[in-house]
Design a protein around this nucleic acid. Sequence first.
DNA 1: GTCTATACAATGATAGAC
DNA 2: GTCTATCATTGTATAGAC
Lengths: 209, 209
Amino acid sequence: MEATRTALVHHEDSARGRLMTAAIGVFARKGYAATTVREIVEAAGVTKPVLYYHFGSKEGIFLAMMGEAFQEFEATATGALGTKGSAEERILRFFDSMFALILEHLDVMRVLEAIYYGPPQGAPSFDFQALHTRFLEILGLLVREGIESGEFRPGDPEDLTWAIAGPFEVVRGMTLSHPEMDFGRTTLARLLKVAFEGLRAANKKESVQ
Amino acid sequence: MEATRTALVHHEDSARGRLMTAAIGVFARKGYAATTVREIVEAAGVTKPVLYYHFGSKEGIFLAMMGEAFQEFEATATGALGTKGSAEERILRFFDSMFALILEHLDVMRVLEAIYYGPPQGAPSFDFQALHTRFLEILGLLVREGIESGEFRPGDPEDLTWAIAGPFEVVRGMTLSHPEMDFGRTTLARLLKVAFEGLRAANKKESVQ
DNA sequence: GTCTATACAATGATAGAC
DNA sequence: GTCTATCATTGTATAGAC
């Protein structure tokens, strides 16, 4: 997994690598539609034909970038399933590893998010839905296990899953749109703690300060 | 307030009104940058010079649209402050009225959200930040009152505010990106109930099913 | 206020030399 | 693999008639 991960972080210092890095930055800042190939190649310090040689088109470099991100997400998400501990601990670790991934690739996540939640902007279609579904699938599994083991109170598993997803959405959203506010793993853990308060089985409730 | 609100819903059947309605739809579907004036005028059944006559530019029609939305948001948000009841009830009503506003103007909210959370797309700058801040400000006020009255447990007001904002963010996000899943006011109320569980003062906790 | 016709800039993409 | 030079298309915006 480490190998897959670094692929996205350290693009080799080739023309191709610099183009990828540059494209991620510009797409993140201006969105797919508003980005021109001229901007990308200027940021990468190459000329237009170099981009077309390596990626074939504006769509091509976009898809290459999304493909790498997709692989890495899938690896991290699935990896979180093989952990031990209480449901709370496992959920916390799952969120923490996903959030760390977001922090490492803020720009890619911004592009991904803009296209998934926002208008397609004429960007080539890409199955972002699968990412989100997979995230909720794993979270739902962990929540269900917590309910069955008696760690969480009885209740509609879907509702409890969404209740736990809330803090993650909040922190993810604020991190992407307001990085200066410095929401982070600590804040995520703190908000999650509040959410867990509403989920714990009655016999496990602690008095909280 | 009703007068302000209808301005956005029922655009008069003039060329200007049809242009506004058409622009909202196209901007929502394709984003600001990817939208062409040709598309707008074709959807409105008029020709290009008509748009330039009424709004001056692509930016002009965008700003006109955002201006109307802004006014309506402010009116609804502020209106929610003048209500009576327990903190839970007031928060629920506040969320419900804000969510109703979103449902009425899904397309405008999509455009607004895309530009606020996503890349600016070259759209004219607009103080979306103020909307979000105002929303959190009001919510924070209601939460603080709940803490002070002893209805909510003691705790960091900021954290508790975010914890309550979570369900709203989730339902808003899902409604905008997956309207077919039919999240709605009922789901919002249900998820909010779970969140309140984690906030209630110890002496007010009820056993939940 | 609304049309036809068009100006003018910028865009994605390529041919062909090196 | 990378460059210079250029093409075809599409974009915003406008002039001028009605």
